[in-house]
């Protein structure tokens, strides 16, 4: 039994590039989730019952089907429809859709918490419905849901490791390659585990800081 981390040194650059891919995929998917989440949140508060039902089914389905199955559905299914996108794009699409199902809840709660008077004020000033949503409702809802959206992001970082199963060499995929070159799975995966834990810890710190920063100005007004 021996444990030697130094064997990883030559591979750190390679792993870092994998981490970059993970970061890129998660950043894009976070944006995608917020967009999906906002759309679904609108649909769920819409007057049309069909739209509300579709939104509900989307959230229910994508929350109760394992992500890996969703991912395979897109990865193997889309080409059948004549849609050829690479593994990275497929991963971002799948993560966005899955994340959107979670983001919609927090965004919806954020929207419902907005004081109706504020929306009245925007309405009488002549702003269009779209402008009211993009300039008033969404920014306020996003500010109040920074924390829950942070959890969505953290979950997304952990879930993104599954993208390695569709040949994407993000952090986990890169680690698998390093294992195949070094035959040192224990060291590699211990480091990988700690790397993810450190990453999510840093993200949660950043989220706390962001939450404080964004809500410093409106602390009182919200309460």
């Amino acid at each position: 039994m021996h444990f030697d981390l130094s064997i990883l040194l030559p591979h750190l650059g390679f792993l870092a590039r994998g981490a970059e891919l993970t970061a890129a995929a998660c950043a894009l998917s976070l944006v995608g989730s917020v967009v999906m989440g906002a759309l679904v949140a609108i649909a769920r508060t819409s007057a049309s019952s069909t739209l509300r039902r579709i939104a509900f089914i989307y959230v229910d389905l994508f929350r109760n089907v394992p992500f890996i199955v969703q991912l395979f559905f897109f990865y193997y299914g889309l080409p059948e429809l004549g849609i050829y996108i690479d593994a990275f794009t497929t991963g971002v699409v799948a993560l966005s859709i899955a994340g959107g199902a979670y983001a919609s809840d927090t965004i919806r709660a954020g929207i419902l918490a907005i004081d109706q008077g504020i929306i009245d004020a925007a309405e009488v000033s002549g702003l269009s419905r779209r402008k009211i949503f993009t300039r008033i409702v969404l920014p306020i809802a996003l500010r109040t849901s920074v924390r829950p959206l942070g959890s969505v992001l953290i979950n997304m970082i952990l879930t993104s490791s599954i993208l390695s199963t569709i040949t994407l060499n993000e952090l986990t995929g890169s680690a698998q390659i390093v294992v195949s070159q070094t035959y040192r799975p224990f060291e590699v995966y211990v480091v990988l585990l700690c790397a993810y834990a450190a990453l999510t810890y840093l993200v949660s710190l950043a989220v706390t800081l962001l939450h404080r920063h964004l809500n410093r100005d409106m602390m009182e007004a919200v309460g």
Partner: peptide, 20 residues
């Protein structure tokens, strides 16, 4: 705070390598 997939790899590939 780490992916279950990585935990699986650690136990399935890592433990046997470490403990023979």
């Amino acid at each position: 705070n780490s992916p279950v997939l990585v935990q699986l790899f650690l136990v399935f590939f890592g433990l046997p390598a470490l403990l023979h």
